[in-house]
Amino acid sequence: MPAARRPEAGGAGSGMAALGFAFGSGSAAALQAVGGSGRPSEAGEGDVEAGPGESRGGGGLRADWHLSGPDPRHVHGVLSAAPRLPRAARGPLASVRGRVGPLLGTAALASSPGSPTTALTVAKLKRSRLKVRFCTNESQKSLEYLVGLLRGLGFDISEGDVTAPAPATCLILKERGLRPHLLISDGIRSEFDQIDTTNPNCVVMADAGEGFSYQNMNKAFQVLMELENPVLISLGKGRYYKETSGLMLDIGAYVKALEYACGIEAEVVGKPSPEFFKSALREMGVEAHQAIMIGDDIEGDIGGAQRCGMRALQVRTGKFR
């Protein structure tokens, strides 16, 4: 059976240098990016389906492609790239499984999240002529911790390969002379070590997890209400994400709460902000039309990338419902 349908040749009639993919069958690493020719390689047999996806999630967004399979374990086309970390310390494999992070690059390979082929796939990608970058909204743990965890899982990845919201936020704070009140978890506090937080004139919120108590939310609210020109910066605005125990409220819900309470709109650093994708593209030195984004979040990953002029591929793992 033809398991992979060839996607339409990419919307804006782009001069995409290289994009295409095919699927192998069974357990072999499957989704393959082809450089150079501009011709997708042949679709192989397998359980995996890729095709123009139906819309799913807010705003009638539609992914360029979906990856799925009757059984998620047969999806060999998913790169578990830079996952958000689980709140509780769990086994690292368990933590990555089901939490598919997004990959930003000129094309991508992928594999079943958490399977050994994932790491091999990343390695293969990195050997190709394609540039690969990992784009995460992780805002509960430091970049160092995240990269350490992924390396521990066998991924060939370094801090320089990742675009993450905390460093981007620090740049913004310095540029604009902002001194934040921080509503963040202890795990990421070290990223803000060099930031002046006295006499705050803005609020920065990251995924504080358990730190999203009424008291802490109220403190942030009071800081904002006392400012003549309240500035709220949030590291991401996701609705929810998946953990082994089930779906969890993400930072976006708490951002919305403060927005509603204060009658303001937060500045989002991270996906789906166009600035965030653009900075990742700049790091790679490629244009939006030459890149594809892979992720499980229809809004943060897919919608954000597509609005930037990139193609996007949604994987039916992680938070996909």
Binding site: M217, M225, R239, G252, A253, K256, L258, E259, A261
Partner: peptide, 19 residues
Amino acid sequence: DGLALGPGPFVTALEYATD
């Protein structure tokens, strides 16, 4: 002790997360 968050923000949070 000053202004405090009402139920609206938390209702909004749940509305947003669950669409």
